[in-house]
Design a protein around this nucleic acid. Structure first.
Lengths: 217, 217
DNA sequence: GTCTATACCCGGATAGAC
DNA sequence: GTCTATCCGGGTATAGAC
């Protein structure tokens, strides 16, 4: 892909110059490089991001970069781990485990939105996987587990008669996940407060655009 | 990306053997090759799909493939054109242009779902663009036009007092688009009828999971 | 730990024979 | 129109000096 490449910048927003590092610089940890990589992947896509891009964003040469990281896929793996930890953490919370299905579902949706917003680049990567490598397929499998847990709860809610009659729980669960996950396409923390987003998504998912109002107009 | 590559198959589901083509074979048109390419892009992603993959899927060598197509980007462009034509066609339909905002919105949502379902690989490509090349940025611009037309209609509906009070039209429009577009992640025509999908999406978007029912349970 | 230099491979695209 | 052979750029990754 012969793209127009803007200069990649590091976390300080300034492209570091190659050369010897400052004496007080903190060492490169896997986590910090994963953070740099996730942002780059988010901008251009995983395949379109080269190790050259990443090393420049980190402020060192490609070779030095390899001194700290075993390869591109390890960076992806690190980022996906972080996203999955966040999501599965939500499923383990008490409010997600106890009580009638709809309040549990509300809690999960709200917390899932929070995780998406705070772990945006990591979750974005997870949601864009195609399954081309073993690492990607592993992550897709875990993600499917998460979706199935939510889908089971939607089914429980419909069987308890808590949803609109005529709702197909399988399709509804897909649309629910889709609505929440679609946040990654547009949400930017600096433009909309997380709390507002959480409320808006909850209302949209459970009450729809029209709420309890009668149709038309 | 060092992926496990399954054999790529053409439209007949069988990988053609290289060699001279059958005398009765129809000629390769741009449209037919775009179709082959779109399916491959859909499976693996644009960047991860090589011209070698594509030519093999078409049943000819890479060089022969280039005899018919100017390059990889032309294939992408052809696919994106098809998706955008479908979407903008919806905006031009009479029911999308006349009447109160909510019925117009309902019509657009329903027809948009139909276009997504019938042009699935093409729309999928459109929705996965990152903007790395000029072609991609052009398509993203046109897509933004479409979204803005829908967003304007959502705003009109809220100003007419037709939506649930408290709905932010900007966020609601994003969630609406996100819900509809998320179909590409899971919808497969052979598993769910288009008509059922259309109804389910309309209900989910406008009435939500809970419909006119009171909360809880 | 960082650099320069380079091995190695793969992908897009072209040349030219048949 | 299809093939074989090849160019060339750029990507991942490594060797070895400092």
């Amino acid at each position: 892909m012969s793209a127009t490449r803007e200069a990649v910048t590091n976390q300080d927003g300034a492209a570091r110059r190659p050369g010897r590092r400052a004496a007080n610089a903190e060492p490169y940890t896997l986590a910090s490089l994963v953070e740099v990589a996730a942002h780059a992947f988010l901008e251009r896509g995983y395949d379109a991001t080269s190790m050259e891009d990443l090393s420049r964003a980190a402020g060192i040469t490609k070779s030095s970069f390899y001194h700290h990281v075993s390869g591109k896929e390890a960076l992806l793996r690190g980022a996906l781990d972080r996203a999955l930890d966040g999501l599965f953490g939500v499923l383990g919370e008490p409010d997600a485990l106890e009580g009638p299905p709809v309040p549990r579902l509300r809690h999960i949706v709200r917390r899932q939105v929070e995780v998406l917003a705070t772990e945006l680049p990591y979750v974005t990567l997870l949601l864009r996987l195609r399954g081309n490598t073993e690492t990607e397929r592993w992550a897709l499998g875990r993600r499917r587990e998460f979706d199935q847990a939510v889908a089971a709860l939607v089914r429980e809610a419909t069987e308890a008669g808590a949803t609109h009659p005529g709702v197909d729980p399988v399709i509804a669960a897909r649309l629910l996940s889709g609505t929440v996950n679609s946040l990654i396409e547009w949400y930017r923390p600096e433009r909309v407060a997380v709390a507002d987003l959480v409320d808006a998504v909850e209302r949209q998912v459970f009450e729809g655009l029209l709420g309890g109002l009668r149709p038309s107009r």
